[in-house]
Design a binder for these strands. Structure first.
Lengths: 305, 305
DNA sequence: ATAATGTCTTTTATCGTGAAAAAACATTTT
DNA sequence: AAAATGTTTTTTCACGATAAAAGACATTAT
């Protein structure tokens, strides 16, 4: 089966949406950058659009003939990356209970179960290993370390260290820096969301990530910025998994973000520190309460103030 | 060619060294744990040792017949992991000049040049990416970010954050903790090395790593512990690359370590902090001076084609 | 009964292969 | 000339296949 053409299919779908807005498509290189694919893929897309009567294509002219219909689109599930498919399968197994710490992970079995080659699974596991949830035994299987309380504490410890530093760096940024405009825009989005929290509370997760990433970027440190991938990943699945009091939690978080933003804008390091600490503390508690305390776990050592 | 039997060869060589010490070898499972390989591999080793007349093997009895000769050993280079081979090749290219930031890395070309399959190179690059020196362009090449001054500063920033915290945690460890005995042993090794620094200065690098890893482990945080891999990797190649004033640098570092150790043993957090800061500062400077300042390309490097 | 050895099965590590996608080169159009 | 289109080459991604290594099961020795 070699390789699926999901890049093409996904770009095709996105290109269809462009069709609604114009009477004719731009040049091939332009479309390429717009869709984030190579010209080779652009040409495949155009070829199919011509075939299905969506456009009339002759050299530079790419006239739109009709609006796309729902059945013009490729099915959603065919546009996913293999890596995404594997990650989802893997996380479902991991979170859907029965994933005890110490359990071993079998590449071949995983590959068979998901219906993909072993190479892709291996590469996924290697990439995934940086999240600290699995570990490789040389020439042998992987070991699951478990989504435990200890894990959450270690993760949040680093997060707090990094974010406090980033927030301080952020507040010290000069007036001319474009980040202040970004922050203003995010603040508006927060206010809007706060007003309509009753119905839009599930949109918070995405806003949350953008906000924290903006702050982390102020550190100008690749290790800090990259570490947010770990946090984002954990919180992404955590949000999907733990829906208890989601509305209330998000409402509180939005309010905390607004205080945090005000502190940043004040440039008062003391205020920034306090607002950041407060928010991170409640984020940590949210995460911790979602983790079932394993009764038989040996020495869940109390650590860290 | 599939897979090289380097595990077997390496274990065989290590097993040969065992032969010098005993008149007969232990049971198969025991040998397995001793050499860190499976019984399957142990049996292959025993089979060959019998063939070459090194031992007489009959069920439980494995009598040593003669001492191993130099030509009994497999050549060193055949005992390396593919991953090690690839890493070395890659780092040589990276450090041997001509590795400008922004340059693109070609999996296929690398694989051909090293003489291995692309899969192994891909897996290596994925693993290597956590060091923050390369970055992947989706569906396309990798980009070299370069071993720059910025990289060194970002790396050391995190290192300092992590080590200060770990050192404080270390000093707070209870009297009964076994780490104090480990520290005592390391202190002795340091004193010994200090006395013979003139001839043994090149042994410092290994001692340095063990010392810092011991401290980082006190954090009880997998992210902190794992991050030391990045530092160790960089320093490992840095030591190989920059031999300028190696003896003097190591002499200073050993002295700093001894002060650091004394501070830890005193449990005085102020002293620990000061000693740690001082040592990390000189470590940073050492690293920084070894990085050629971008722009001044005056150095007539012998570039590999 | 326990622990070793002997035998058989499964998994991991690595390669070559081929389609998808990118990139490079050549030609035309504005 | 610059920028597009047309064409060809190269690289990435993912697979199945196979030897090395690990692991499981069966048998024998203490």
């Amino acid at each position: 089966m070699s390789k699926s053409n999901n890049v093409y299919k996904d770009a095709y779908n996105r290109c269809l949406r462009l069709l609604d807005e114009t009477r004719s498509l731009p040049s091939e290189p332009e479309l390429g950058t717009l869709l984030g694919v190579s010209r080779t893929t652009v040409r495949s897309i155009l070829a199919r659009m011509e075939e299905t009567g969506l456009i009339a294509w002759n050299k530079r002219s790419k006239m739109v003939l009709r609006a796309p219909r729902p059945d013009d689109f490729f099915p959603e599930e065919e546009t996913d990356t293999l890596a995404e498919i594997i990650e989802r399968s893997f996380m479902r197994r991991l979170l859907a209970g029965g994933a005890e710490a110490g359990m071993q992970i079998n590449e071949l079995e995983l590959a068979r179960e998901i219906g993909v080659g072993t190479t892709s699974v291996r590469e996924f596991l290697i990439r995934f290993s940086r999240f600290g949830l699995i570990e490789k035994r040389r020439n042998s299987h992987w070991v699951l370390k478990g989504f435990t309380r200890a894990f959450a504490l270690e993760l949040t410890e680093i997060r707090e260290m990094f974010e406090l530093r980033s927030a301080a760096a952020f507040a010290a940024l000069p007036e001319e820096s474009p980040v202040w405009a970004d922050l203003d825009r995010l603040e508006d989005e927060h206010r809007l969301l706060a007003r309509e929290i009753a119905t839009r509370f599930n949109e918070f997760s995405e806003l949350d990530e953008r906000f924290h990433r903006l702050i982390h970027r102020a550190s100008h440190n690749r290790f800090i910025v990259d570490f947010y991938d770990v946090i984002a990943m954990i919180f992404h699945y955590h949000y999907q998994w733990n829906k208890a009091q989601e509305r209330e939690r998000n409402e509180v978080a939005v309010a905390e973000h607004l205080v945090y933003i005000a502190a940043l804008k004040s440039r008062d390091l003391g205020k920034v520190d306090a607002a950041c600490r407060k928010h991170l503390k409640s984020a940590r508690n949210t995460l911790l309460t979602s983790i079932p305390e394993a009764g038989s776990r040996s020495a869940p050592e109390a650590r860290r103030a």
